[in-house]
Simulated scan of single mutants.
Amino acid sequence: MLALSERGQLPAALGRLASGRRTPDVAILTTGVVAVMLALGGDFVTSITASSASRLLIFMVCAAALLRLRGQSDAPDARFRLPLGTVVATCVIVVCGALLVAASAELARLAVLIVVGGLLWLMSNGRRWFRRA
């Protein structure tokens, strides 16, 4: 959270350092509170499902980034080029999406986290992003 706050991607309060220890106390406290709420608010299966779903979302975003970078002419040259990378990335997105849909009943908490994260992102980056679009 500290690094994201320093880059302006999260509210500045999350990046504030304590005067004596020089640690991001607000970020540490926020992370701890969210972790405790998630741990106490659900059962083990739901926690595992949310953890797996968050990884699937990361895989999907990485695959989408691959597709977008391959389509940009001004992107830097790749050090490694995956043969049939477009096909592989598309398959990753489809399969991960299907797995997320199959687990959708267990993902209500993850949806709340995504909405909260999206709102935090909009608070810090929304204006800049919408001006570029």
Results as ranks from 00 to 15, higher is better:
42 G>L: 03
42 G>I: 04
44 F>R: 15
45 V>N: 11
45 V>W: 09
46 T>N: 04
46 T>R: 13
47 S>I: 01
48 I>V: 15
49 T>H: 07
49 T>K: 13
49 T>S: 15
50 A>S: 07
50 A>L: 06
51 S>P: 00
51 S>K: 09
51 S>T: 15
52 S>A: 10
53 A>F: 01
53 A>R: 00
53 A>D: 03
55 R>N: 02
55 R>E: 12
55 R>M: 09
56 L>Y: 07
56 L>N: 04
56 L>P: 00
57 L>V: 01
58 I>Q: 10
59 F>A: 12
60 M>W: 04
60 M>H: 07
62 C>V: 11
63 A>G: 08
64 A>D: 12
64 A>L: 13
64 A>S: 10
65 A>S: 13
65 A>N: 09
65 A>R: 10
66 L>G: 00
67 L>S: 02
67 L>K: 04
69 L>Q: 08
70 R>E: 11
70 R>G: 07
70 R>H: 10
72 Q>Y: 07
72 Q>P: 01
74 D>R: 09
75 A>S: 14
75 A>L: 03
75 A>K: 03
75 A>W: 09
77 D>Y: 04
78 A>H: 07
79 R>G: 14
79 R>A: 15
80 F>S: 02
81 R>M: 02
81 R>Y: 04
82 L>F: 07
84 L>F: 12
86 T>I: 02
86 T>H: 10
86 T>C: 03
88 V>L: 13
89 A>S: 15
89 A>T: 08
89 A>C: 14
90 T>W: 04
91 C>W: 09
91 C>P: 00
91 C>F: 11
91 C>K: 06
92 V>S: 03
92 V>F: 05
92 V>P: 00
93 I>E: 01
94 V>L: 14
94 V>I: 11
96 C>I: 03
97 G>F: 00
97 G>S: 08
97 G>I: 01
97 G>P: 04
97 G>W: 00
98 A>F: 12
99 L>G: 00
100 L>V: 09
100 L>D: 02
100 L>M: 06
101 V>R: 12
101 V>T: 12
104 S>I: 07
106 E>T: 04
106 E>S: 14
107 L>W: 10
107 L>F: 05
107 L>A: 10
108 A>I: 05
108 A>N: 06
109 R>M: 10
111 A>L: 15
112 V>K: 05
113 L>P: 00
114 I>F: 06
114 I>N: 04
114 I>M: 11
115 V>L: 15
116 V>N: 03
117 G>H: 08
119 L>E: 11
120 L>Y: 12
120 L>E: 05
120 L>A: 13
121 W>M: 02
122 L>D: 06
122 L>S: 05
123 M>W: 14
125 N>F: 06
125 N>E: 15
125 N>R: 15
126 G>S: 07
126 G>R: 11
126 G>C: 08
127 R>S: 11
127 R>W: 12
129 W>L: 14
129 W>M: 06
130 F>Y: 09
130 F>A: 06
131 R>H: 14
131 R>F: 03
132 R>W: 05
132 R>S: 11
